[in-house]
Design a protein around this nucleic acid. Sequence first.
DNA 1: GAGGCGTGGAG
DNA 2: TCTCCAAGCCT
Length: 342
Amino acid sequence: MRDKRSDALLAWYDRQARDLPWRAPPGSEQAADPYRVWLSEVMLQQTTVAAVKDYFARFTEKWPRVQDLAAAEDAEVMAAWAGLGYYARARNLLKCARVVAHDLGGVFPDTEDGLRALPGIGPYTAAAIAAIAFQRPAVVVDGNVERVMSRLAAIEVPLPTSKPLIRDVAAAMTPQDRPGDHAQAVMDLGATICTPRSPACILCPLSADCAARAAGIAADLPRKLPKAAKPERRGFVYVAQRGDTWLQETRPPKGLLGGMLAFPTSEWSEDPAPAPPFAADWEALGDVRHTFTHFHLTLTVLRADAAGNADRGTYAPLDPGALPTLFAKAHRLVTQRFAAGA
DNA sequence: GAGGCGTGGAG
DNA sequence: TCTCCAAGCCT
């Protein structure tokens, strides 16, 4: 038995589907490649399509198959992910690729449970891959689905309390056939029509069935609990140059910017103590500002020509593209003040 | 289950 | 400038 809202949505999707490099066209006989679906879904976690596109192209060009990715060096993958954020995704991506390549014969599991057991694949991503790559009628619930379903059913209970109800609404709408297209259709609708701020209800294929639209509260849903303010932290970042080389280190494998290339820093706190990697005449070049998920940060950039041995990091030619954005900002400040390499 | 975990774009 | 936020996961 089919839901007529799903029919209307699929008809809209057949006309309006976004052409994305990891997708099979709507109603396509040819299924999407599970490796590409998985890679795109991980990259798209909490991340916009616009931000993902170039990274997806570079990854698939460099590593066309999961076996290729599994064989890559950790540092190479972290460098390729630099700038995309949430770096635990890249660490888990590599772990997952190696499990699939080494333990599963290079074949992704084709069930939600099988996928869910892999590193970096949670409830949403497992359902999405199962539906999109394997035509399983999984109930796919992400931020778009939460917004669309909250509005369709005029759910005024705030998130996350409303999650179970939202899932019920989404389940009732999920078709047995074309579940992958259905999931992607809801996401396209959420990204282009049923947007967070100013939904274009006039263009929506579901507007006649939308309780929030009828009540004139579509733009107000879903309701969310207010968020805590971000605290301020400060710190020092030390940029040491020796000829054409820069003092750099790989951050510890867990926590903030874990596993990423970096310059040495002090602690980050309300009142940080300086922590230069060696004694020198450090020149303050200015501050860089950066906002993370849960705090604001101001780092004072200190630069020196390498004098003695550093107690941390190594001197090597720098690949600025491998730096996460915070350290790319510090690097930019230094290169603005000093000709490259000087 | 609540908090840690990035980034760049939009309004 | 500032807030919100975009296809969540892990602990």
